[in-house]
């Protein structure tokens, strides 16, 4: 199934270009820092230097090279996006599987819950959750001797919080699929052969869902990246000196003033963010359209 998903993208020339560009960005984000001469050291003499041959994208308030900051921000955003989407995948697929397979009361209750959560300001809850649980989580980590994790408490809470609010669409899609799949003869056969519900769910239904799940995973990653940067923008996401695309944009926005315009601080992070999300959305959309049976030409 995975190979065929890649094949779908490869067939369309526009999507192929997007895919190549996306992998190029991924490689730059992962390995670009090794080739930089200016790691993120502070140099107040170089404060707010515009883009030049020395610093391609200019420098920030502390004289740090914006390119280096941008690369590490890109890495962090991608990281949060994938882990957050992963958490949402686990919750969404489990809820969808259970609701769709067992039906009746369970289905009704779970789907009612999904409807309800759709209608609530979910990010507001994440904000409250992060601010309330930050200290208790830190204490907990200290207790179980994971003190080296302490600087990453916010990140940990971001994964959990964002994963916990972004599983709704996934659950709906998976449930819909399971509803139709569970009527098929292979499920009946497995049942007749005496397999348990858990075995049927994991061995028979789950593999059939891989395609659609990967598609919606691709579409969830940009959403999580967006939400992470939204929280970072408000100062509730990653903490300095760590940078994500959102915190870089927020820093750039802070220095917006009519007297001295440091346009590079806002333009480059915002551009990178838009580019990254555009590519992810293009790929996800392309996959979804290709898998939609109604759209077969």
């Amino acid at each position: 199934m995975k190979a065929s998903l890649l094949q779908i993208l490869w067939r369309d020339s526009f999507l192929r270009a997007t895919l190549i560009a996306f992998f190029a960005l991924l490689i730059i984000a992962l390995f670009g820092s090794f080739f930089l001469e200016h790691p993120q050291d502070q140099n107040s003499a170089l404060q707010f230097s515009p883009p030049c041959s020395e610093h391609w994208l200019g420098t920030d308030f502390h004289g740090r090279d914006l390119l280096a900051r941008l690369l590490s921000g890109l890495r962090l955003s991608l990281f949060v996006g994938s882990i957050g989407a992963g958490v949402s995948l686990v919750i969404g697929v489990s809820v969808g599987l259970i609701a769709g397979y067992f039906g009746k009361k369970i289905d009704l209750i779970l789907m009612r819950l999904v409807d309800l959560l759709y209608s609530l300001p979910r990010l507001v809850f994440v904000i409250v959750l992060i601010s309330a649980l930050e200290k208790p989580t830190a204490h907990f980590l200290e207790k179980i001797h994971l003190s080296e994790m302490l600087p990453h408490v916010r990140l940990l809470l971001l994964f959990i919080g964002l994963g916990c609010v972004e599983w709704l669409t996934m659950a709906r899609i998976v449930r819909g699929q399971v509803l139709s799949l569970k009527e098929s003869t292979f499920v009946l056969a497995a049942r007749a052969l005496g397999q348990s519900h858990t075995q049927i769910l994991i061995r028979h239904l789950l593999p059939n869902l891989t395609g659609i799940v990967i598609v919606y995973l691709t579409l969830t990653i940009p959403v999580v990246i967006l939400e992470e940067s939204f929280l970072s923008f408000l100062g509730l996401g990653v903490q300095a000196p760590a940078a994500s695309l959102g915190s870089l944009i927020s820093e750039g926005a802070q220095y917006l003033n009519p007297f001295e315009i440091q346009w590079w601080l806002i333009l480059f992070p915002a551009g990178t963010m838009a580019l990254l999300l555009l590519m992810l959305n293009l790929l996800g959309d392309g996959l979804r359209d290709a898998m939609d049976p109604r759209k077969k030409k």
């Binding site: 940009p222 967006l226 940067s229 939204f230 923008f233 944009i249 927020s250 750039g252 926005a253 917006l256 009519p258 315009i261 346009w263 806002i266 333009l267 915002a270 963010m273 838009a274 580019l275 990254l276 999300l277 555009l278 959305n281 293009l282 959309d285």
Partner: peptide, 23 residues
Amino acid sequence: ALLGISIPSYILAPLFILFFGLH
């Protein structure tokens, strides 16, 4: 439209301020 989805309000806002407001 896809670009629009990829540029949320809080990115659009500083860009608009930069261009329409300050520039």
